[in-house]
Write a protein that binds this DNA or RNA. Structure first.
Lengths: 228, 228
DNA sequence: CAGTCAAAAATTTGATCATATTCTGCTCGC
DNA sequence: GCGAGCAGAATATGATCAAATTTTTGACTG
């Protein structure tokens, strides 16, 4: 797979060609976030460079960013892996997520308009469809998209970025959960959230998100405890 | 300034030579954190490479990491600067810091022993000395050291890392505050914290840290409002 | 004739790569 | 088992190309 260096697309509209290091970053990030690279799996610079047809300098930069994001772990030697969650890490993630994401929901509820609720509902409908079809990758992507759309509405970019980064830490494990339990018993807290948003109920939105966070993390915890 | 490539120090003890990109990262990080590079100031890859006597690849990696940390800002073109805080950013930082750092204090209080309180007290004494001598860099470093030592004791590495990263965002502005107001009117909330810790009072520790956070952020806010 | 704006050259800086070097872990023979 | 050497992978450099900024220059107008 060769990355193109495009200054204009075929329609003649000048598309800002992203730097290669940015493309590699996005690519690798999404692979990790949606569990395509499993926890524990090693990531090599040369392997990635070869796979993406890029030089090693951009790959190197992408990997450093992802290490800083917590999406990759630099093991004292020169080895880089996708980190494996343990109970202690998960417990900390729950605390931080509850604090930040509930506040983001609260703030988003302050800025919603009807068109926004519609858009979220659309995503949620697609999400339900993915669940009933057992489409795990689709579920993971839409769930992420749902939350990020919500947080973008909060008009608190720094908080939203923090939340976003946290998803990189448990994303890989979420995939493992779905691989083990399927998509059937994924209760959906999003309906509560949508009605709270439609009513402009800040606290209701905060509670709904908190519930969603707890529930998701509990599923991961269940898998972790089995593995012990 | 040339970075040494040491496999052993002069005493013969094998010292693990850090990779150049790591050295550059540490160096630049501490410069930003303690305000040696002012907010708004541009950071160039080649400039840094020349200044540190390093190649551009390691410098590049260090800069990417710091961008991911929020310590540097990548401006759409290819320019990188130390970001300038605004009120909205500061408000978000206050919220996150209160949530995370108060919890870290709570957890640290659970794990303190007398020797730890002693060590913190030592740092605090040095901090007082720096304040009374008007030693701004010393104050900034010791204050950071005080908080990080506390958070390390909480046995919650992920939360501590999040907190650490946030300091990179307001550190540069703290320096500006001290440059404007000096070190004299820096009230010190650390005494409350120390006695709470010594008493094993989790909530007391949490409150003390929250107060410390609020007070520090208010000082920055005051400067921001002047600048408007 | 002077001032201003714009175009173009020059310089600075960023992006990428190919390559040399060093380090790590592993294997094979003793 | 244990140590030397080997394969592979990471680190780091400098060269090269491209993009952006700055400076220079020149023409046109008032």
């Amino acid at each position: 797979m060769k990355l193109v260096k495009n200054t204009a697309d075929q329609a003649g509209v000048p598309i800002r060609s992203l730097p290669v290091h940015e493309q590699v970053y996005q690519d690798l990030r999404s692979r990790i976030l949606f569990g395509e690279t499993a926890p524990g799996q090693a990531v090599t610079i040369q392997g990635l460079a070869d796979a993406l047809g890029a030089g090693m300098t951009p790959v190197r930069e992408a990997i450093r960013r992802l290490i800083s994001d917590g999406a990759l772990l630099f093991q004292g030697n020169r080895r880089v892996i996708v980190p494996t969650l343990d109970i202690a890490a998960l417990e900390q993630l729950v605390f931080i997520r509850k604090s930040i994401e509930s506040e983001l929901a609260r703030r988003a509820a302050r800025h919603v308009g009807p068109e926004f609720v519609d858009r979220l509902s659309e995503i949620d409908a697609a999400l339900d469809a993915a669940i009933s079809q057992g489409d795990v990758p689709g579920y993971l992507r839409l769930n992420y998209q749902f939350h990020m759309a919500l947080y973008a509405q909060a008009k608190a970019p720094i908080m939203a970025e923090q939340a976003d980064r946290l998803w990189l830490r448990f994303g890989p494990s979420l995939r493992v959960v779905c691989g083990r339990f399927g998509t059937q018993n994924l209760p959906d807290r999003h309906k509560d959230l949508l009605s709270a948003l439609a009513a402009g109920d800040e606290e209701g939105a905060a509670v709904a998100v908190t519930q969603d966070v707890i529930q998701g993390m509990e599923q991961i915890a269940a898998v972790l405890e089995i593995r012990e």
